[in-house]
Design a protein around this nucleic acid. Structure first.
Lengths: 339, 339
DNA sequence: TTGAAAGCGGTACCAG
DNA sequence: CTGGTACCGCTTTCAA
């Protein structure tokens, strides 16, 4: 049997397609009896209205696109999930694409998305995005919201995490535990995100009258390996006496790398040194000891992006910063007094 | 400016819409000059053909849907990525939905997908799927491929990993290293996947004339915690003399839990006991020692699903089993001879 | 309260 | 080689 259309339903119910359309959309006034007959016909025929046809007429596809660097990255997976959930609740579909931050892929996918006539686009790709991309976006009239991507000159709403605040809170957590010699591990300082975190760190120290010490800033590389090396470097450079009592690792991966090194060296966390991470990746709770860390409000990020995207407001260059929160687990504790 | 349509292009190029359509689709024969003029017009107008309109006419949306339990699960994220990549290469879009294996969500999303008139559906959700879902699928004419979900009575192609083979290979790796006392850690034996893995394990032992010992089968619970407990239970039940020299953990999470326990007890892996996992989750390479494990051919799974889905073949109940492979890292080694 | 008809933006058949 | 035209399936006036 071929696809059943609105006409089949109409015929079956003994009315016109226009009337069926009205009960489908709840527009116009239809008598209860007619409405009932139509519903029955829809049910019997297992009629499923074509969003394609309706989109063509209504200029609304009930679909949004999500552009991320890599869905395989847990952060973006969580983000996608948040968007999905919100979308499903509104009967929207989500088209997802991983771009690997490759300009070519981004542009190709954007092109596809635009042809699909999506109702909106959530962009969470890297900051190093091509100008071409922006031009296309701009001239194309789509609604766009950027996530996790604080760039001054984006003429669209940006929803992001307040990493400055996150670092501040992480550092304060350590300070409140009683730490005063605190090191910070960072990804390369060429990244805005690293800079932000360093700033929050410094500010928290300042707020508590703790002197900021250049020699306690360690930065280089990415991932677990970098954390391992940074820890190694710290231990090598400092004598046991001058070791900090706590480390703020600006990334969970860095923290986990450091943790591995400490394990190997028989340095106990948090007894000898406290360690707080940042991101709350899944692994954070699986390592031993479970890592105290800063969780980004990923779900809120996704939800809010979706809501703003489909809101009725005109989309302008506004930045919304959402607060992260400290998740206390077992890798931080009060320092042992070495009198 | 309003959306530019094929008519705008036609007017600009001084031809009819029909002709523009032809150069767009490469159908019919168009003189080089006309074709050139049309291309120029398209370029100047920044024309982007509406897939909506074309889909309505051609009954082809260039979109496929992907149903997974949770995109946040690294396995499904990787799968999604594989599907995405393949899709992008074919100029297809991918709609993704996490269902949490909740029948209600599955059905709701399926309904949405069907309305979207997708060209195909890749289903990778749990085995505990509602009958309702199947009925809807069946009567709806969509092309469907199942992934990672070996069920006898699915009237669609199934692409899955050969877990029997995977377990066989894992066990054989241990045997070839010289182990003969090998324990196996499993998730509950009520799961088909556990049974499959146990079967492969037993078969490998048999193939190498090693006696299968019931007391070396440990099964209960899920995740890292279960691994920890199983390791604990094993150590408690067995005296140090009768400890196996190797463990095959049917899940990386189980392996990692066991690893943590051994760490705490000062038992060295792989010096005192070898450990092989299964799944090759991201964490596997981050723990110390990096975990030898069995990697599922996720990328192939996704690619093949996409290709089958969009192939020209009629979709029938065929099962394709793809071989996993052993990834040797540092948690396995030859046993120390205890003479 | 209901329906006829025009049209959304393409495609494809068929005539010229 | 090119264009007129009907139509894909639904929505939306507008008149009845």
């Amino acid at each position: 049997m071929p696809k059943v259309t609105i006409y089949d339903v109409a015929k079956r119910a003994g009315v016109s397609a226009a009337t069926v359309s009205k009960v489908l959309n709840g527009t116009g006034r239809i008598s209860p009896e007619t409405s009932q007959r139509i519903r029955a016909a829809i049910e019997e025929l297992q009629y499923r209205p074509s969003l394609i046809a309706s989109a063509l007429k209504k200029h609304q596809t009930f679909s949004v696109g999500l552009l991320v660097p890599d869905i395989t990255n847990p952060f973006y997976a969580a983000l996608a999930r948040a968007v999905e959930d919100q979308a499903l609740a509104h009967n929207y579909a989500v088209l997802i694409c991983s771009t690997d931050n490759i300009a070519e892929r981004e542009e190709k996918q954007l092109e596809l998305f635009l042809r699909q006539r999506l109702d909106g686009l959530i962009v969470a790709t890297s900051e190093a995005m091509g100008q071409e991309f922006f031009n296309t976006l701009h001239q194309s009239q789509v609604r766009v919201v950027f996530i996790d991507r604080v760039i001054p000159n984006v003429p669209y709403p940006v929803i992001a995490t307040d990493h400055y605040l996150g670092s501040y809170l992480a550092t304060e957590h350590l300070i409140e535990l009683g730490h005063r010699d605190i090191a910070i591990f960072l990804e390369p300082l060429t990244l805005r995100s690293s800079l932000e975190r360093l700033r929050g760190f410094a500010k928290a120290l300042e707020a508590h009258q703790i002197k900021f010490d250049d020699h306690l800033v360690f930065s280089e590389g990415f991932g677990v390996e970098a954390g391992y090396e940074l820890a190694q470097r710290m231990l090598t450079q400092k004598g046991p006496q001058e070791l900090p009592t706590a480390i703020f690792a600006a990334t969970d991966q860095l923290a986990i790398g450091a943790l591995q090194y400490f394990h190997e060296k028989g340095i106990s966390v948090p007894d000898q040194i406290s360690l707080i991470g940042y991101d709350d990746i899944q692994m954070a709770k699986m390592v031993s000891p479970p890592l105290t860390t800063v969780a980004q409000p990923i779900t809120e990020l996704g939800h809010q992006a979706f809501e703003v995207l489909l809101g009725t407001q005109a989309l302008s260059a506004t930045t919304t910063l959402l607060p992260p929160r400290v998740v206390v687990r077992s890798s931080t504790a009060a320092p042992h007094l070495q009198s």
